[in-house]
Design a protein around this nucleic acid. Structure first.
Lengths: 336, 336
DNA sequence: GTGAAAGCGCTAACAT
DNA sequence: ATGTTAGCGCTTTCAC
């Protein structure tokens, strides 16, 4: 490690004061064009790189964003991250990574550390559950720029970007109904998730519109995992209510469900039609290929990040909610 | 945003010099115990948070690590990230995220930006391909602490943590051989990857040990995707060489292969036995459940991060290579 | 359009 | 065990 080239070295070599160099690297307008060019050339020659730490210290901006994640096994959120990261790069920001994978209770400590790093804003790429909004509220009230995906707090001015889960639930159920089914079971996610409530509501709307009575015993809950989808179907099969179709609120549970149905000797889609949710990559390659609801996840990350940066650069921006649209992908587990 | 509480405020409130406060927050030994306690209490009361930027500027250490990733759809690497992130947290470091997902040629620019941020070290959680080692070499020669997973550069003192791919390839082929197969096809990954060469080599070793002649036309290459596994099988089926078993070098291609075999009317494992590689979550839930090679991916991330931090804190550490062991998971696509 | 001066909040010798 | 003195490399007034 040789000694660092600083703004002063550049200034000396270009025969200007170092403040002028500062203006050049910050693209300020008030520099004569030939001075600017000369400084730029010297920067090149010397291989000068501005120090992010020094800039942050002086400017009180870090151009760093915090990313809160909970589950790297969930395709939805990893794709959100991909979109978010690309957008941050475009805008010249970086994400600092914080996965609370193992232990959600780490989150407050984690947010403290992000505060210490003086991140300019925080993106929550994780779902809301019931008991955890307290420290998030405190962030909001401290005025920390914040955008969430799939994370809601009732009655708060929170900027959230999400996919329309009511609509998705409705599309899923409608596909099943159009295929002629009237006894439709559902494997929902954990009841505390807002997306679960929304998808369930959308499903029930579709049922109601088709004058299909709602049968509570045909709803089971899973935890989004393959195994929980399998378990849920086994419970459904043991129950007394018959069903010819199944809406699983994510693809992993749908695939777990297919697994259990096959074991039980039920053919998919002949005996039981299925619609999943997410359109994970394997959905097209499992057997049978899964009819499912596609969500524009990378887009969610991209839009969320863009909004976050907008808030950072203009704190008075009005908080709003952006809902993107999901769409049905017809494959073979539910055909019209 | 109210004014920041600084180390001087704490010092004043605790009636010590601010350097003493610095010692306390850095857990230096040379502070009297009651002074330390008093300072700690004041820190609590005032809600003081040290400024990471100021610390970095003064200490020339950022406690920030760069993470280079290429593919968030690849289970191997996302799990490496999970393990890496957890370990970084434990050691009080953060990762800055850099996915070169879309465009690998972004990487040099990305590394430049990481240099600007003065990251203390860089973790490459991406595979090596053939043409990209130039800028990585320049990092090594500049003495930037660096650890890679699955990334090799011939003849360089590079710290790499990986899973033993030769052994994995051998285990996969052996499982097939033990099940009685002698005509074994292989769907390899892209030929330029070292892991592909190693898995192939391991496979051929096992073949040689069993006195099975090697049939070059039974090797096809894919790009790790489901679709490429499907295509590879279609080519294999069109070829003249017969086979009763298939080793796919990752699970996604294995699942794509099963898909194609089913379409072609071949039963798995009755007509064609299959062993995959990775043990992705869906492997246990696809049909039939996939026999595959499990890799301790989170562990790779954890070990790599720990080594990286060791290098940072002790630059003279000897570079070494850590190879973790994969293991065969027997499911239903290849049974003895 | 450009320069001078004053910090940003902290760590790191060195002194005491 | 604690305080003193210098910066770290930059941005930001404010002059000129």
């Amino acid at each position: 490690m040789k000694k660092r080239v600083t703004i002063r070295d550049v200034a000396a070599a270009a025969s200007v004061s170092y403040q002028t160099v500062s203006r050049v690297i910050n693209d300020r307008p008030d520099v004569a064009i030939d001075t600017r060019l000369r400084v730029r050339r010297v920067i090149q020659e010397l291989g000068y790189q501005p120090s992010a730490a020094a800039r942050s210290l002086a400017s009180r901006r870090t151009r760093t964003l915090g990313l809160i994640t909970a589950d790297f096994s969930d395709y939805f959120f990893t794709q959100v991250i991909v979109g978010a990261e690309a957008e941050a790069r475009r805008m010249d920001y970086f994400f600092i990574l914080g996965s609370t994978e193992r232990n959600p209770s780490d989150e407050p400590e984690y947010l403290r550390l992000l505060a210490e790093r003086e991140v300019d804003g925080i993106l929550f790429a994780r779902p809301s559950t019931e008991h955890d909004s307290e420290h998030v509220l405190s962030l909001i009230h401290r005025g920390v720029p914040l955008v969430t995906t799939n994370y809601y707090i009732p009655n708060e001015q929170l900027m959230v970007v999400d996919v329309d889960n009511v609509d998705g639930g409705r599309q899923a159920a409608s596909a099943l109904i159009e295929a002629g089914h009237r006894e439709i079971a559902m494997i929902a996610g954990p009841p505390s998730w807002k997306s679960v409530k929304d998808r369930t509501q959308g499903c029930q709307q579709a049922l109601a519109e088709a004058n299909i009575p709602f049968e509570p015993s045909l709803i089971e809950h899973g935890d989004w995992s393959y195994a929980s989808g399998q378990d849920a179907v086994e419970r459904l099969l043991r129950g007394s209510a018959r069903f010819t179709a199944l809406f699983a609120q994510n693809d992993r549970m749908a695939i777990g469900a297919i697994h259990a149905l096959r074991k039980a000797g039920r053919a998919v889609p002949e005996d039981i039609a299925i619609v999943g949710y997410d359109d994970i990559p394997v959905a097209a390659y499992c057997h049978p290929p899964l009819t499912t609801i596609h969500q524009p996840m990378a887009k969610v990350g991209q839009v969320a990040t863009r909004l976050l940066i907008q808030i950072i650069e203009n704190p008075d921006l009005e908080r709003k909610e952006v809902l993107l649209k999901p769409r049905l992908v017809r494959r073979e587990t539910c055909v019209c």
